[in-house]
Design a protein around this nucleic acid. Structure first.
Lengths: 241, 241
DNA sequence: CGAAATTTTGATCCAGTTCAATCCATGTGG
DNA sequence: CCACATGGATTGAACTGGATCAAAATTTCG
């Protein structure tokens, strides 16, 4: 399974240079690409899941459904993201993942990856880095939900999504095609759909963004950043010995 | 620096059996124990931080201060926890950590740990596991803040804190000494102090907990778990090859 | 013992939810 | 190519859960 041009290679390379030989040993443990249709579940809540899935194209959400019927979305999953982290470390998944568009990804069994870590320690560190990045994203989300106003939250979400899409070449300098419905954004930000809608209008009214349908234009990027108190968190490169 | 009886050894052993030799190579990279006084900052927001600190005794909080003056607490840090994860992976810390009681811990330079990972790949996996656990804790926190009612959040916080204290031998079967003020709990749960106080009273009124001062008694553990929809998330053991 | 920190209570108010209804775009089959 | 179905976006009105602000009561600590 060749990995050339795969968003995940782009992503890993940014963190730690990978030699051709290393990319090859990574490619060796991958199975054939899979794809799922919109609305299909990649991970079922409560089930066991022991694979790493590197998203190539398409979008998904990781979420938890509560008894009350409410849904909290933990993460918007974009190309380049890893599904199955941190789930693979646990007995059973505490969350579900569902595709919100057609989605294709490369899979490798978690056990194979772990074996690779024993052979080439670098990969163990890469895994740590990915997990740490995941944790940092979640941390930002906590701040958002706990102590930010709705408009700040939305600004943050738009900026973050834009930055992540940009990093894998799926966005323009200040515009992008938002692949998520308002219901999804509301469930990510802990708001009701009507309110999210009004907050979106507010952003437009203040000339911070322009949007027609799902096409978002970050008209005033600096203003948005100020509003969201946006701070980019750069991963430090992995030391090599 | 001998690590015998250190809470972190207890914690790591649960995830992955460590041979005596391995504990020793771990002990070798640790410096002398440090301690800080109440209110002292372990990590300053925006600074660089490249160490792993394993808490031996005492309590701390990881938090973010916003322009508005509001504070969001990301994590209540207890003995056995690691400070400097995921911070060490990043250029600069996005968060601050401050002790809320006298606190003692063992430190090792992050670079030393990384070097150890290259020599003994197992430690790279251990690091991944710790980071994944961190991410999972944060995920639960997100659900709490986004879609749970205040009383559910508090129930969850009490159960979680109890479970974590129990794991390091600092709690009774259904009672413990809560080392955090209501202000801290409020800032963790995204509530105002007066409201947190009232929610606490509500828990008492419904005979779910009894509490005098900081001593908490989980009178009706099953009821609390039901209320919080508590589900324990067990880490799977690291495969050994 | 006095100062500071923490917990508790009360009164007011508004942001955001809830529950509908409506509007709009897109796609589908006859 | 139209009639209809479906999912998403938008709007409106009413209600309410928590925030806010302020003060008092209580505990902790120097």
């Amino acid at each position: 399974m060749p990995l050339t041009g795969h968003p995940i290679v782009t992503r890993l390379t940014r963190v730690m240079g990978l030699k051709a030989a290393e990319i090859e040993s990574l490619a060796a443990i991958f199975e054939r690409d899979l794809s799922v249709k919109k609305r299909e579940e990649l991970i079922v809540h409560g089930s066991e899941f022991r694979s790493l899935c590197f998203v190539k194209a398409g979008y998904a959400i990781r979420y938890r459904l509560l008894r009350s019927g409410k849904r909290q979305i933990l993460k918007l999953i974009l190309p380049g993201d890893v599904v199955g982290l941190p789930v693979s470390f646990f007995d059973r998944s505490g969350y579900a993942v569902v595709a919100v568009s057609e989605l294709t990804y490369a899979v490798c069994p978690f056990a194979s990856y772990v074996r690779l870590c024993y052979e080439q320690p670098k990969f163990g560190l890469v895994l740590s880095w990915l997990a740490a990045e995941e944790a940092a994203t979640y941390a930002e989300h906590i701040v958002n939900l706990g102590r930010r106003t709705p408009i700040e939250r939305l600004a943050q979400l738009l900026l973050d999504t834009h930055a992540r899409l940009l990093a894998v070449g799926l966005a323009g300098e200040a515009s992008f095609n938002l692949p998520f419905s308002q219901e999804i954004m509301a469930d990510a930000l802990g708001l009701s759909v009507p309110h999210l809608n009004r907050v979106m209008q507010q952003l437009r009214a203040e000339h911070l963004v322009t949007s027609n349908a799902r096409l978002i234009d970050l008209t005033d990027l600096a203003g948005l950043r100020r509003l969201a108190q946006y701070q980019s968190t750069d991963l430090a490169p992995i030391p090599v010995f």
